[in-house]
Amino acid sequence: MRAVRLATARPGLELRSLLPTDGATYAALMAANTAHLTRHGDYTDIVTASPADHTATLAASDPRHHFGIHEAGHLVGSATLVPRDPPRYGLGYLLAEHACGRGIATLAVHALARHARDNLAATDLFAGVTHGNLPSVALLRRLGFHRVATFPTHDRYHLDLAALPDVTA
């Protein structure tokens, strides 16, 4: 399957399929952001995975589902679609600490949601957010997600992709 590039509403910010050749770069990004990514108890397995582990995971993944978030050509995060029950998909995303607070994740998740709707015939997205991760909750709400369930460690959010709003840079 071919690699995919997704534009965002901000010049210089795009999503690119994460490929096996990105394994070492992705591992380095995770290692450099361990404290940031694990502060709510999430991502412990991903930050400790080796470059070879990431390379193997990317080799087994669909390039239409797993993307690196690139700002000015540099990998600053990832965004993933999880096809658990197509046309309904799960959503995951993460950013390096230095990339937070500038709208990057909002624009990236919006581009991924458009891609899911327009190219994969997705109808719904679901995302889980660990309790206490208020920036992630705010991002999902900006994009029209609504909380639909509460669990001991996290809340589940849902977006009907027919209601995906437009966003600007």
Results as ranks from 00 to 15, higher is better:
residue 1 M to P: 06
residue 1 M to I: 06
residue 2 R to P: 14
residue 3 A to Q: 15
residue 4 V to I: 15
residue 15 L to P: 03
residue 18 L to H: 03
residue 24 A to P: 10
residue 27 A to T: 13
residue 27 A to K: 09
residue 29 L to G: 05
residue 29 L to N: 05
residue 31 A to F: 05
residue 34 T to A: 15
residue 36 H to S: 14
residue 39 R to V: 13
residue 44 T to I: 11
residue 45 D to F: 15
residue 45 D to I: 09
residue 48 T to I: 13
residue 50 S to K: 00
residue 52 A to N: 05
residue 54 H to V: 04
residue 55 T to P: 10
residue 57 T to A: 14
residue 59 A to W: 00
residue 61 S to P: 00
residue 66 H to M: 12
residue 68 G to T: 13
residue 69 I to L: 10
residue 71 E to I: 00
residue 72 A to R: 08
residue 73 G to V: 06
residue 75 L to V: 09
residue 79 A to C: 10
residue 82 V to Q: 15
residue 84 R to V: 10
residue 87 P to K: 04
residue 88 R to H: 12
residue 92 G to H: 06
residue 92 G to R: 09
residue 94 L to S: 13
residue 97 E to D: 13
residue 98 H to A: 15
residue 100 C to T: 15
residue 103 G to W: 09
residue 107 L to S: 08
residue 109 V to E: 05
residue 110 H to S: 03
residue 111 A to N: 08
residue 111 A to K: 04
residue 119 N to T: 11
residue 120 L to I: 09
residue 124 D to H: 10
residue 125 L to I: 11
residue 125 L to T: 07
residue 128 G to Y: 05
residue 131 H to S: 04
residue 132 G to Q: 12
residue 134 L to M: 10
residue 138 A to Q: 07
residue 139 L to Q: 08
residue 140 L to C: 04
residue 142 R to M: 07
residue 142 R to I: 09
residue 142 R to H: 09
residue 142 R to D: 02
residue 144 G to R: 00
residue 145 F to M: 05
residue 146 H to N: 08
residue 147 R to C: 11
residue 149 A to R: 06
residue 150 T to I: 04
residue 151 F to I: 06
residue 151 F to A: 14
residue 152 P to K: 03
residue 152 P to D: 14
residue 154 H to L: 08
residue 154 H to V: 05
residue 155 D to S: 12
residue 155 D to E: 05
residue 155 D to P: 03
residue 159 L to W: 03
residue 162 A to G: 01
residue 163 A to N: 11
residue 163 A to D: 11
residue 163 A to H: 11
residue 167 V to L: 01
